[in-house]
Design a protein around this nucleic acid. Structure first.
Lengths: 130, 130
DNA sequence: TTGACAAATTAGCTTTGCCTAACTATAATA
DNA sequence: TATTATAGTTAGGCAAAGCTAATTTGTCAA
């Protein structure tokens, strides 16, 4: 079954935190997302069950290859959509908030169309916005 | 509390069906959305509780002024977003499916920015796509 | 007027994804 | 080493929003 918004947000968070720190723990994920420890614990269990995340020998949360690929794809949506809204004059806060919700609901087709359109206009899509 | 995707979809459906027929019944809403009668019954109860819909003297479902305003606003998002995706080369089916999900998650600010952008490029936003 | 079908509602189940409370395990320091 | 704090898990609850089954309501035609 297709992954839900919730699972995607956990993946994306682990991915983002992994870029800032070598050891990402459940508690860090919870603090970042504003969720309780049990919620994170269960969500991570599901990601592990589905082969998207694992715990390494030092107890750090790591994404599997598949998990990382998914996370990157979601994160790319996030950055491109944020950029799109900002290019249209929306303030950064609103733009990133909207991107954060829409990234889970837009199809590959529509997303790629938006991305292609923005490339055409020379937008710098590589720069992260968060 | 802010209205959820589910409630918005019911509102939008009642609005759309009301344009085609004078008497919209719960069963019609259910058939259109692919939901069971009890699901529709409960959802309509919530819309009524919140002052967004009512049943008229002939048993037809009607939107209140507030309900209709909301429905129109959601439906406008639907048409504008569909147009946006189609303008970018996305096929109609995908474009309307995406619009149908995203319409519930985009902020007023970002939506208005998109709309303004499209007006600038002379897109015909008045024509319905469904 | 009554029998039958269509429409609506009630009751209760399921899943998702959050929560708190309580418990266990780990780790660090006195 | 023992105490204590931090991290993680288990158990159980709640709300949203679907579902089926069963009941009630309403309408219409024989």
């Amino acid at each position: 079954m297709a992954m839900q918004e919730s699972g995607e947000m956990y993946l994306e968070t682990i991915y983002v935190l992994s870029q800032k720190s070598t050891k990402v723990r459940a508690i860090d994920v919870g603090e970042y997302m504003g969720y309780s420890k049990p919620s994170v614990s269960r969500a991570l269990g599901l990601l592990k069950r589905d082969g998207l995340a694992r715990t390494d020998e030092f107890g750090a949360i790591k994404l599997t290859e598949e998990g990382e690929a998914k996370a990157k794809s979601i994160y790319e949506r996030h950055t491109v959509l944020s950029k799109l809204f900002m290019n249209l004059g929306v303030d950064e806060k609103t733009a990133t908030e909207d991107a954060c919700r829409i990234e889970h609901y837009i199809s590959d087709k529509s997303f790629n169309a938006i991305k292609a359109h923005m490339m055409q206009y020379g937008a710098d899509l590589d720069e992260a916005t968060e």
